[in-house]
């Protein structure tokens, strides 16, 4: 299967090599997004993700198709977690495999940057005494 596009409660970080491995690929590039402990010097206890799942999957699929067409990729992975995630837990995985490394490096950057711009998923930062929807207000 060329594309793996998923929204899941818990991301399995161990399957991604097999999902991207391909006889025609000499390069595989993967980006993991994770929960960071501090935002602007404030301690984050968790992130909570919510998705408009049916639309998010469609948008992720479009991004995968654009990347495949632009960089002639052999395989693409885009996976996002939903629900409450603690510090160090993975929240997103994007990956690409291609004949040579430059294509998959560039594609990976495009996949995560575009996901952050267009895919209807929302992140709430949960601090000790408050919680904030990220980017909601100017």
């Amino acid at each position: 299967m060329k594309k793996t596009v998923e929204i899941v409660d818990d991301l399995d970080t161990k399957t991604v090599y097999d999902e991207l491995s391909d006889r025609s690929s000499g390069g595989i590039c993967v980006f993991f997004g994770a929960v960071r402990e501090f935002t602007d010097n404030e301690e984050v206890t968790a992130l909570e993700f919510e998705a408009y799942k049916s639309m998010a999957l469609k948008e992720m699929d479009k991004i995968a198709d654009m990347a495949i067409a632009k960089w002639n990729l052999n395989k693409v992975v885009i996976k996002h977690a939903v629900g409450k995630k603690k510090v160090e837990e993975p929240v997103v995985i994007v990956g690409a495999s291609s004949a040579h490394r430059s294509a998959c490096f560039e594609a990976c950057r495009f996949l995560i940057d575009t996901l952050k711009e267009t895919v209807p998923i929302w992140k709430k930062e949960i601090f000790k005494n408050k919680s904030v929807w990220v980017s909601a207000h100017p």
């Binding site: 995560i112 209807p120 929807w133």
Partner: peptide, 10 residues
């Protein structure tokens, strides 16, 4: 019809 506030995945 869905109201989509600024997205913040990733």
């Amino acid at each position: 019809v869905a109201v989509i506030p600024p997205v913040s995945g990733g």
